[in-house]
């Protein structure tokens, strides 16, 4: 009974909850938070490279989305629109934050905590994976924000060119061009991994 409820619940599209929220049902937005917070946190973590900033940015993203929901025109998927809000929030954080200096260490700490539960039997593997992820993140942090957004959306979030173009409000050609430039920039930094 309970499992069938969850199956039915997951089948309900986001737009239904968006409509309910706009009509004044504040609890409907909770379902949207439950569905999308992990993806938005992942995006923020990769964009900002710092788990604390990522948590703040995720909260700000959902708050901003809740406030701006009446202006959502249903021309794209809710998740695409939410990604756009998240990217804007992250870029604001990048502009005003000095977190980039402490990125690598904080991110490594975060990953170390997460990997501990998976790799407790293989400490060497844990260290290697943490360092590797930390180095990839450090390399991504070196990219300009626009290229970073494309890389994160394409590789970490697995979005298609068309979806990235909608999120970033640019053409698919621009997405491809930015991604190519980003890969060439990252190539030398990730050569030894």
């Amino acid at each position: 009974m309970l499992s069938s409820f969850f199956v039915v619940n997951l089948m309900i599209p986001d737009d239904v909850y968006v409509h309910k929220t706009v009509e004044g049902d504040g609890s409907a937005f909770n379902e949207l938070v439950q569905r999308h917070h992990a993806k938005i946190y992942g995006l923020a973590c990769r964009m900002l490279g710092n788990p604390d900033d990522a948590s703040d940015a995720t909260q700000e993203t959902f708050l901003e989305a809740f406030k701006s929901l009446p202006s959502f025109q249903f021309q794209s998927k809710f998740s695409t629109w939410l990604y756009r809000v998240a990217i804007n929030t992250c870029q604001q954080h990048i502009r005003k934050s000095d977190s980039r200096g402490r990125t690598l260490m904080s991110y490594s700490n975060c990953l170390r905590e997460q990997n501990r539960q998976y790799d407790s039997d293989f400490p060497e593997r844990m260290v290697l994976k943490t360092e590797r992820d930390g180095l990839i993140q450090a390399a991504i942090d070196q990219l300009p924000p626009k290229q970073r957004a494309v890389v994160v959306l394409f590789y970490a979030q697995n979005l298609k060119y068309r979806e990235i173009a909608l999120v970033l409000d640019c053409s698919e050609g621009t997405v491809a061009s930015r991604l190519n430039t980003a890969i060439r920039n990252l190539k030398s930094m990730l050569k030894d991994l």
Binding site: G26, F29, N30, V33, Q34, H37, A38, K39, Y41, G42, L43, C45, R46, P51, S55, T58, Q59, F62, L63, F66, C110, L111, Q114, D133, I136, V151, Y155, A156, Q157, I183, R184, L186, K187, L190, K191, L193
Partner: peptide
């Protein structure tokens, strides 16, 4: 080198969010 870079980036995984993050957001909302 480009193939290698792409392979490294394809291995990226999203970090898990803190367990209380959704609750925090819902309270704020």
């Amino acid at each position: 080198e480009m193939l290698q870079t792409v392979a490294v980036l394809e291995s990226l995984r999203n970090p898990d969010p803190p367990p209380d993050l959704a609750l925090k957001i819902q309270k704020q909302i």
